[in-house]
Design a protein around this nucleic acid. Structure first.
Lengths: 147, 147
DNA sequence: TTTGGCCTCATACTTTCGGATGATTTTACC
DNA sequence: GGTAAAATCATCCGAAAGTATGAGGCCAAA
């Protein structure tokens, strides 16, 4: 995929630049490793905190709720997934299956190999007692694991 | 994980940029200890401020509005099927597809040949603009043709 | 009678799915 | 550090899905 190629190209370029810089640093300068480490650590901390803050930023959210006539008691999704032994990654793949995506499309979107997706799909079929992906999606929907 | 990969990619890029800037500083300026100490001190001050704000941040406020259910006007199923050119038999096959059945299972249930079912499925894929049965079912569901 | 739509079925082929089996690496927990 | 679970990836193979193409029968409308 074009997107994937671009992604890995950028990553590769950055890696090359980093190695170039590391080489240069070793050749030209001696000390400062501790300072570098400290700065890098600080930057990491800052980034983590900033991201964390962004996630928990106070907001007033207005939600319009349509009142359901009858509340149907059922296990929360997480509990059901635990019960079935479906991992986080497997659940992601299940959701993409439910969106009608092929194994290759799921692989491209998740940046993994199609063989990895096949492994996840096989596990999902086992855990949902399905013979094929269409049945897995149907069973998951019946159990309200997915919309 | 797409998000995770992107996150680490961005982090990686920032790290490379930082090292580049550090190299530049080493080449251009002389005394570094004071500068570094000042930078590190400033960063940690900022970190402390940020953490302090985080600890006393008010929680998310959610305001719920109760709205009575409203009937959403939409074409009746029959009208939509006519519009799409989906025949009675094709619709039956679509429903069975949505229940996770294989072509052979649909053939057995409908007392027709699996080849007949394949023809119907191909027509359905064309009319719903789908590449495969999972997508056809997803598209049909989105259009409220099936539950 | 002709025509067009629907239904049925076939063959040959390509693509995708899924099972079996095996393996390594990463992550999280003790 | 050790361990188990999760995630990743591979290969081989058979089954299923899907495509292309073609064809015949039935039925209602023109």
């Amino acid at each position: 995929m074009n997107k994937r190629l671009l992604f890995y190209g950028v990553l590769f370029g950055l890696l090359a630049i980093l190695l170039e810089i590391a080489k240069y640093r070793f050749v030209i300068f001696d000390n400062q490793v501790e300072i570098y480490s400290g700065v890098i650590a600080a930057i990491f901390i800052i980034l983590g905190v900033v991201l964390g803050r962004k996630l928990v930023n106070p907001k007033e959210i207005i939600v319009e709720k349509i009142v359901e006539p009858v509340a149907i008691p059922r296990l929360p999704v997480d509990e059901q997934l635990n019960k079935l032994g479906i991992s986080k990654r497997e659940y992601e793949v299940l959701q993409l299956m439910a969106q009608g995506m092929s194994n290759q499309e799921i692989a491209d979107k998740s940046f993994v190999s199609v063989n990895t997706v096949k492994t996840h799909v096989s596990n999902i079929l086992l855990k949902l007692d399905a013979k094929r992906r269409t049945q897995a999606v149907t069973n998951a929907r019946a159990m309200k694991l997915i919309e």
